[in-house]
Computed example of a mutant assay.
Amino acid sequence: MQSTSNSIHKKTNFSVVFGDFKQLTKVGLSLSVVFSSLAGYLLGAEEIKISILILLAIGGYLMVGASNAFNQIIEKDTDALMKRTKNRPLPAKRMNVSTALVIAVSFTVLGLAILYSINPKSALFGAISIFLYTSIYTPLKAVTPLSVFVGAIPGAIPFMLGWVAATNDFSIEPGMLFLIQFFWQFPHFWAIAWLQYDEYKKAGFNLMPMGQKNKKAVIQIIIYTVCLIIVSIIPVLKMTGAFYIHPITAVILVLLGSTMLYYGVKLYKHQTDKEARQLMLSSVLYITLIQVIYVVDKFLH
């Protein structure tokens, strides 16, 4: 009987530890970033090498996991103040800082080594991403809403990183992928900041544009959504090197972007959390589908 209860206890302990590890490295977010970099690789590769895809997936996951772990170490006290984050392993004291630090550092070293084995440029962009996210974006969050602009840079690197991993080259094509994901960050993140406004305020963060949750903020969201739609269809002009799309693909992307725009306009009119949530969900759908559509378009050339 004793051994049965011991094994149940061990299983429970393991599931708690594993759950904490998943929370510290934000598995869901990390996987969406890996998806972006794999899409970028498929767009850039002349011939697809499964070994590089696997290395990119593991290296990309480790880099994002490291960034998230460092972020939670730095913000453990403010995380304790917010409902959404107070049950994370560090503020809930289920994990100590030194354990989290070991995970963060080992993920960084391993992730960089794996990306370097693909090519040095991939490792360089991975390192820039971690540095900007943890050393500049995270501390700036408590200081100014402009931190969102800084955070959009590491947030936009994964899509571009995939192309660089495929070609060992940084030119107009990965620059274009970077721009698309860069502009996407703003409506997406400001929709989240709208929903979490009071919670963020408790923790001393104000991430809305110009610090206010009002119509002026929504105008910014709408402007960036329009910019996103425009940069998403620029490849149809065939001015972006090897990265171009068919006219029909551009039409599909405009329709897809119009969904985000529709919810942005609704948020402007009604200014409720319901519209902000719809905008946030439509932005997640947009960035996922656009990457799939680009890849499908490439293979239909």
Score class of each variant (00 low, 15 high):
Ser5Gly: 09
Ser7Asp: 15
Ile8Ser: 11
His9Phe: 15
Phe18Asp: 09
Gly19Gln: 03
Val33Thr: 04
Val33Lys: 04
Val34Tyr: 07
Val34Cys: 08
Phe35Lys: 12
Ser36Met: 04
Tyr41Pro: 01
Leu42Asp: 11
Leu42Arg: 12
Gly44Ala: 02
Glu47Phe: 13
Ile50Cys: 15
Ile50Tyr: 10
Gly59Ser: 10
Leu62Cys: 10
Met63Trp: 00
Met63Asp: 01
Ala66Cys: 12
Asn68Val: 02
Ala69Phe: 05
Asn71Trp: 00
Lys76Arg: 14
Asp77Ala: 06
Asp79Met: 02
Ala80Gly: 04
Lys83Val: 13
Arg84Glu: 01
Pro91Asn: 01
Pro91Asp: 02
Arg94Gly: 08
Asn96His: 05
Ser98Arg: 12
Val102Tyr: 04
Val102Ile: 09
Ser106Tyr: 03
Ser106His: 01
Ser106Trp: 04
Ser106Phe: 08
Val109Asn: 07
Leu110Gly: 12
Leu112Ser: 11
Ala113His: 04
Ile114Ala: 00
Ile114Arg: 00
Tyr116Ile: 06
Tyr116Ala: 07
Pro120Val: 11
Ser122Asn: 02
Ala123Pro: 06
Ile128Met: 12
Ser129Leu: 03
Ser129Tyr: 01
Phe131Ala: 09
Leu132Phe: 04
Ser135Tyr: 02
Ile136His: 09
Tyr137Arg: 10
Lys141Gly: 03
Ala142Asn: 04
Ile153Tyr: 10
Ala156His: 13
Pro158Val: 15
Met160Ile: 05
Leu161Val: 06
Gly162Asp: 13
Gly162Gln: 12
Ala166Val: 12
Thr167Asn: 13
Asn168Gln: 02
Phe170Lys: 03
Glu173Ser: 15
Gln181Met: 09
Trp184Ala: 01
Phe186Trp: 09
His188Cys: 05
Trp190Asp: 08
Trp190Tyr: 15
Ala191Trp: 15
Ile192Asn: 14
Leu195Val: 10
Gln196Ser: 12
Tyr197Asp: 09
Glu199Thr: 13
Ala203Tyr: 11
Asn206Trp: 07
Met208Cys: 14
Met208Asp: 11
Pro209Ile: 04
Gln212Glu: 00
Lys213Ala: 11
Asn214Phe: 13
Ile223Arg: 08
Val226Arg: 13
Cys227Gly: 11
Thr240Val: 12
Gly241Arg: 14
Ala242Pro: 03
Ala242Leu: 12
Ile248Asp: 10
Leu256Trp: 10
Leu256Ala: 14
Gly257Lys: 02
Met260Val: 06
Tyr262Asn: 08
Tyr263Pro: 06
Gly264Asp: 07
Val265Gln: 01
Leu267Glu: 02
Gln271Glu: 05
Glu275Ala: 02
Ala276Trp: 04
Gln278Thr: 06
Leu281Pro: 11
Ser282Gln: 02
Leu285Asp: 07
Leu285Ala: 14
Tyr286Asn: 06
Leu289Gly: 03
Ile293Glu: 02
Tyr294Gly: 03
Val295Gly: 11
Val295Leu: 09
Leu300His: 03
